[in-house]
């Protein structure tokens, strides 16, 4: 579903944000991308959305090579890749319902689709009762749920999350993780960039660790803070999981 092949990204100021990264993520996987601040997690997410282009290497998303994809195709790529951020990015003057509906309207989905899909996804994220509230009337956790609903309402193949719990307390964060897990169980591939150790340890899912732009660990049922030397064991675990 996602494949990085020897990807290197150097920003204009000379910072090497991602160095020789190769990574395979299968359909339906749930993957944490961990690492300290500045290790290149956000850069990877931005390259998957084609907001940034790598300097070397190739990237496949949903069976398509996206580096040489013509510009006009990029919107169609993004319809297959939902994304949520630490700062929610909701429209403050639209209600919960309108925020989610907006994502369907602007890709030209007809009214009847909007009217059936939006209530469904609001039910899924547990906000059916708050559909007519403005974002400012919601808690941080609820706002992030709206953002997840917006990213998921078009049923993308992949859901990306960049520090989705960065602004939330631990209990609320766990709620968001449960929600992402539920979405993952519908068959959606989920990739979460985070440095929230407690959450990663709690979920026990595949962990890919970045350090200064290189992968130092890839572990099938990882925890956050494992030493890089266990990486080789981790890769065999991943291999076993894939063949099963």
């Amino acid at each position: 579903m996602i494949r990085f092949d020897n990807v290197t990204k150097v920003y204009k100021n000379g910072t090497v944000a991602v160095r020789n990264v190769s990574l395979d993520i299968q359909k339906g996987e749930f993957v944490f991308l961990v690492g300290p601040s500045g290790s290149g997690k956000t850069t990877c997410i931005r390259m998957l959305l084609r907001e940034e282009l790598p300097d070397r290497g190739r990237i496949w998303v949903a069976g398509r090579e996206i580096i040489h994809m013509p510009k006009w195709r990029v919107p169609y790529l993004r319809r297959n890749v939902g994304c949520v951020f630490q700062d929610y990015r909701l429209l403050p003057n639209k209600t919960v319902f309108q925020n989610v509906a907006f994502a369907l309207e602007v890709i030209g989905r007809p009214k009847n689709v909007v009217e059936t899909q939006v209530p469904q996804v609001l039910e899924l994220v547990g906000l059916a009762k708050k559909r007519d509230n403005l974002p400012s009337e919601l808690s941080g956790g609820e706002q992030q749920r709206v953002a997840v609903a917006r990213a998921f309402v078009n049923r993308p193949l992949i859901l990306l999350a960049d520090e989705p719990t960065g602004n939330l307390d631990p209990a609320t964060s766990q709620g968001i993780m449960r929600l992402l897990d539920r979405i993952n169980r519908t068959g959606t591939t989920v990739v979460i960039a985070t440095h929230d150790a407690a959450l990663v340890d709690w979920m026990r899912r595949r962990v890919v660790e970045l350090d200064q732009g290189t992968i130092v660990r890839d572990q099938a049922r990882g925890v956050y803070g494992i030493d890089a030397t266990s990486g080789s064991i981790a890769r065999t675990e991943v291999g076993a999981r894939r063949t099963s």
Binding site: P75, R79, G82, R89, L91, F102, R150
Partner: peptide, 17 residues
Amino acid sequence: RREVSVMKLVGATNWFI
């Protein structure tokens, strides 16, 4: 600008924007 950035994020075509 906020709407436009959300539109780009969710895959609205350039012409639609």
